[in-house]
Design a protein around this nucleic acid. Structure first.
Lengths: 151, 151
DNA sequence: TCATTTCGCAACCCCTGTTGTTACAAGACG
DNA sequence: CGTCTTGTAACAACAGGGGTTGCGAAATGA
């Protein structure tokens, strides 16, 4: 597992939750994600703390969406996960004495900062409803052409 | 180690190499980077294989720049390091059957792809000479005002 | 009341990739 | 030949996401 899949997984789950009436249990979600319920609870905890989903214990319990998908952006979910690092690339020393390294840091920071900003701006503009709409389009196409296309 | 510091380190070293006449040994470089010579050789190997630096054994040996800094971009160095992953974020499944997950992947891939492209485009436009020029500016400023400024 | 369902959470191990370290071979120079 | 220096293999250290087990607590239903 080289990379952090939490955002991807949470988006996936949230859209499924919107498609269903009843709450989803951690166990059901775990099967969707090919993982196990503890990982699900651990990851969803941030979304719960931010009020995007609610969890209920006992019979008939599980996870429910707390707001419509068009009021939830990818950025909201990303932030709810605790702003995990975007880049695998980093600086050798954040506050170096060497003037050469300071110049290098500034050059890299400018490029990384711009890329990060572009990414997060985009995340902030895309709602989960946008992704769900894309899903519905695929679903319609799939009904008409259920055979596998191998391009 | 949360992130990959090789690019940052190599940029740092290459600019120092340009400031000096004689070859730099792995040992000297290691001291600059607060690491040890084996790490230096391992990391510089990619730059050597791409012809950006040369290495010589024995007395008076070490590492030398093989081309001027204005003919070396950050992208060149990045690629010479083997195109390491840019993002710490990734998809749960690269080729999912679930249509919801496909929609999520497309949404994320678009945002990540654009950010990656912006970053690498920028890397391709900045030469090591640009960073060196920034260093020289800092150096001049430092000579006039050597006292620490704490903002 | 009691059993069952379900979340909450701590504690641990596993995996992957960078970094650090030791050891040794091989080439270059005096 | 002796020393300097790179080249490389092998392995430990470390960090962070992910997986697993175990147990507690709350809600439900009989």
């Amino acid at each position: 597992m080289s990379s952090d899949n939490r955002l991807s997984r949470m988006l996936h789950v949230l859209i499924h939750m919107d498609q269903r009436e009843h709450p989803l249990t951690s166990d059901e979600i775990a099967r969707m994600l090919n993982t196990n319920p503890v990982v699900v609870r651990r990851t969803m905890a941030g979304l719960r703390d931010n009020g995007y989903v609610t969890s209920e214990k006992g019979h008939g319990g599980g996870w429910k969406l707390a707001r419509p998908l068009d009021q939830l952006t990818l950025l909201d979910v990303y932030v709810a996960l605790g702003n995990p690092p975007v880049f695998a690339l980093g600086l050798a020393d954040d506050d170096p004495r060497c003037l050469v390294e300071q110049a290098v840091n500034d050059g890299l920071n400018e490029a990384l900062g711009k890329a990060r900003q572009l990414l997060l701006d985009r995340f902030g503009k895309v709602t989960l409803a946008d992704l769900a709409a894309d899903f519905r389009k695929r679903f319609e196409a799939h009904r008409k052409r259920p055979a596998k296309r191998v391009s």
